[in-house]
Design a protein around this nucleic acid. Structure first.
Lengths: 218, 218
DNA sequence: ACCTGAACACCGTTCAAGT
DNA sequence: ACCTGAACACCGTTCAAGT
């Protein structure tokens, strides 16, 4: 049996890490995650995976968690750190849209809590009053998760690389302009648009809301 | 055959409206939407449904759309209208968490575009500069969709009626306090918390960010 | 302890056949 | 035009049996 073993690639035993890695590869390839296909890829039976992973949901969560990554070091500018953290998440879901879908449908899972923690600490560093910290951090988190979900939805429905503004412009063409005047207007304005820049603009807007409530100025 | 026909309830022919209605009933009951179960409920075969609905995704989208509802009349206070519109969405996803999941994973679908349009028009009415309108409306929309997804995720994983703050407090107990100091802090502060009030506080925070950029003062 | 793969209990969807 | 329901091509998950 000619198993094409690439040089330096030992035929490791099955492990949670290898399973998650193979799952990520599969999802990144645009394929649906299936225990049968995954087992075939790992040259084993579907039952073997269940020794290392409880079920499909856990595997998807683990794959998303692996792809979101560990936090970057903080800077001494809390707002900058928040922007950086948010962009990290954006870049991760941009590279792995399926992870964006997971993020949006996971609640209080380690991955989301880690993002929340990271944002929350910087909210504290900004000097937000105790009573407002939860609101501020939640607003940022929910915005990020909302974008994650929309980004994933788009990746599913259009060709990769299509910008949100293009989708919106296309959608607005099919819309009754009398019922959707705003979308018509705004779609026209959106000539040059970068989803990443747009995402950051939203973060900055929320940060401005947070700042305007700060006890002392800035 | 004793079909228990309630008085005044004619045994209508199958229709898209009846199918969507039955689907909503099924989802509200906490059951998974299945073509077989739905067909049984409608006393027909699964194939019959396909004459009126293209596939499961379309049916879920139609059910979510039906449940989000038509916009309320606008007031002459744009901020108030935005708050009202946001609360309408929150109340709908609170009553039908499965619809929240759909919202979060649908992009540029009529339902989401309708919410976006509603928000966007009020953003214009607030006097936001043209170049900022898309950012402002997107920030609000993505926040709403993020909450929708989280709310749905929670409804799936805990008993109905559990508040986000309780989930967070429970989660924080299992968390390493050294790695999650913020969540630990904030979970402690969250004694009396209403998810609906909390949701609105986030909307107000973003609105404040929008206002702080207004050309003229308020 | 870990792996195998057949088997179980489902799915969404199609389609020939009916009315 | 609309409905029926068997059939197709899958799923996730379990579990007896192996090593």
């Amino acid at each position: 049996m000619a198993t094409r073993a690439r040089p330096g690639e030992r035929e490791d035993a099955l492990s949670r890490a290898r399973i998650v890695e193979a799952a990520i590869e599969m999802l990144d390839g645009g394929n649906e995650l299936t225990f049968r296909a995954l087992a075939a890829q790992l040259r084993t039976g579907p039952g073997a995976i269940y020794w290392h992973v409880a079920n499909k949901g856990e595997l998807l969560a683990a794959a998303a968690d692996a792809v979101i990554g560990e936090p970057q070091p903080v800077t001494d500018d809390p707002a900058l750190t928040i922007r950086t953290a948010a962009l990290e998440v954006f870049d991760a879901i941009d590279a792995h849209p399926w992870a964006g879908e997971q993020l949006a449908r996971l609640s209080s899972q380690p991955t989301v809590l880690r993002i929340f923690e990271r944002i929350g600490r910087q909210v504290q560093a900004l000097g937000v009053a105790e009573a407002e910290q939860f609101t501020a951090a939640s607003a940022l988190l929910n915005y990020v998760l909302g974008v994650a979900g929309q980004h994933a939805a788009q990746a599913r429905s259009v060709e990769p690389g299509t910008r949100r503004s293009d989708v919106l412009r296309a959608a607005s063409t099919n819309l009754d302009p009398d019922r959707f005047p705003f979308i018509r207007d705004v779609a026209g304005q959106l000539r040059e648009h970068d989803d990443r820049v747009q995402f950051l603009a939203g973060i900055d807007l929320i940060l401005e809301g947070i700042r305007s409530r700060l006890p002392d100025g800035r």
